[in-house]
Amino acid sequence: MSNALNDDRHITYADAGVDVDEGARAVDAIKAAVATTSRPEVIGGLGGFGSCFSAAALKDMEEPVLVSGTDGVGTKLAIAQLLGRNDTVGQDLVAMCVDDIVPMGAEPLFFLDYIAVGKLKADAVAEIVGGIAEGCRKSGCALVGGEMAEHPGVMNPDEYDLAGFVVGVVDRPKILGPERVSAGDVILGLSSSGIHSNGYSLVRKAVIENKTVEELNKPLEELGGESLADAALRPTTIYAGSLLAVLKAGAPIKAMAHITGGGITENLNRALPAQVDALVDRLGESGGPNWSVPPIITYVSEQARLSLDEQYRTFNMGVGMALIVDPDDVDDVAEALVAQGCNPFVMGECVPGTGKVVYRDVA
């Protein structure tokens, strides 16, 4: 019996599962979306082996510091693939990256993506990249390049995964962080749009598994008439553009925390010095927090029978970004945020402690 090396069959790249022509069509399909994200610093366009971005503007800073970040969308992608809805996960990808560097006061400059697919389909890739471009426009960064990799035999034909990479800049004297925070400071929250992009392994286990597409698209009273599909795939809010506008206008924000995996409990503490705790008012007189928790978070928590502590360590609980400000500056910062379309609310205060998030429950 002959082996593959001695076989005289003609095997093309297409026979192996890689469609080069479809890849070319995918690149053509995304060019217009990418162009809408351009900034003056971008040199050239798609097609080069590397992406060029001028650093000339950094000369105006006292000590420019580059800030980078990378992330993905996680198992939220499995729901998007199940439903065949690929137009919003790109925004999720950008949000998870740019809103991780903004807490340092960094402006996102440029973004790159990596898309791995089982079978390349130009239309689906165009939808994904369209969402990435939308996220870049909202955050003010340029989509300068990326990679589409087809993995036949390794991934299922309708399966894909995403990763994103962002580079930003901040002037070193303006870097925000725990060293600026003191006991007595006030914690402001910015509303989330829903689950955002964390906790989806639990979401899928609790409310998605064993349901048909028809069931997922059915309106639910518990979700205010919204379907599980719509609620679960609502894109992650991008705060970067609004927060940078506020910072550039001089708003005296001391520190920020992007509320992602680990919820409020395991993210807000990252904005605290070792001698300060964040005291969060988790339960008010109404029996709930002094802000709105999206119905999808409440619904999943109830279906999974999560305790309150588990909820606050899993989901954002309606808070996508937390800001720490001096008590004398709360009104001015809140006013500036409202002018940018944000919905700020007081969620607690900083108190002497050991760098942890603690809760004040007043039922």
Rank of each mutant, 00 (worst) to 15 (best):
Q275C: 04
A78V: 08
G50N: 14
A257I: 03
K119E: 05
I43K: 15
D158Y: 02
A339E: 10
L272G: 00
G261Y: 09
D331A: 07
P252E: 03
M96K: 15
G184P: 03
L162P: 03
D123F: 09
L112R: 13
V117T: 12
A29P: 06
L190I: 09
M104W: 14
A322Q: 02
A231G: 00
S191Q: 11
K138A: 07
M317S: 12
V73R: 11
S307D: 00
L220D: 08
G146V: 01
S197T: 11
D331H: 06
A29R: 10
T298K: 15
K76A: 03
G44F: 04
S2R: 15
N269M: 12
K254L: 08
R204M: 13
E221Y: 13
A336H: 05
C350P: 02
T265H: 12
A106F: 00
E63Y: 14
I259H: 02
P178M: 05
V213A: 07
N210G: 05
V125E: 07
A16V: 01
G140N: 05
Q303P: 02
S182L: 10
A249N: 07
D123W: 07
S197E: 08
Y114K: 14
M256F: 00
L283M: 09
G44R: 06
C97K: 05
D161G: 13
N86C: 09
G353A: 01
G50M: 14
M256G: 00
G199S: 07
G69K: 12
E41G: 06
S191Y: 04
V325T: 08
A163R: 14
S182C: 07
E310M: 06
L143M: 06
V207G: 02
V325Y: 12
V144A: 03
F111I: 00
P344A: 06
L202D: 04
N269H: 14
S197Q: 11
V65P: 03
E222C: 10
G225A: 01
P294E: 01
P40W: 11
G355F: 06
G353T: 00
V125T: 12
L120C: 11
E214P: 03
I195D: 08
I79C: 01
I195L: 15
P327S: 00
E147H: 02
G250A: 01
G241V: 13
V346N: 00
I324C: 06
Y200E: 07
A149D: 11
T36F: 11
V154G: 03
A133P: 00
S68D: 10
Q340D: 01
R204C: 10
L66Y: 01
V170D: 02
G135W: 07
S2W: 12
